[in-house]
Amino acid sequence: MRAAALIVALALASCDSSPEIVFKDASLTLPDDPVDLPEGPGRDAVIENCTACHSPSTMLQQPKVSAEKWESIVGKMKKLYKAPVDDAAVPAIVDYMVHVQSLPEAKP
């Protein structure tokens, strides 16, 4: 019964006549990510293999997880999302993520 009542209510909200919809072209310019990745071991490997898809800001916002978890995340990016990550670079990427997650966070 409730479902029927809702449909009636929605029908009442419909307009009686066709509106004047005019579709215009749309465009926008998106801002760049102003963040530089902090210095650390493996930074170059991350820049070469990860930043084409991931803003540095995103990488620095993840909760602290283990090296094994970072390795599985990089594996997922390769296998599932077909990221062209160099296998030889994976240990350096993992090391870097563990390193940046060990840095203190700014506090108000």
Binding site: P34, V35, P38, P104, E105, P108
Partner: peptide, 18 residues
């Protein structure tokens, strides 16, 4: 403050929120 990367991000874009 510490964690220069994200903090400078805030400085460049606007503010920071917790």
């Amino acid at each position: 403050l510490a964690a220069p990367a994200l903090a400078s991000f805030g400085a460049k874009l606007g503010g920071m929120i917790d």
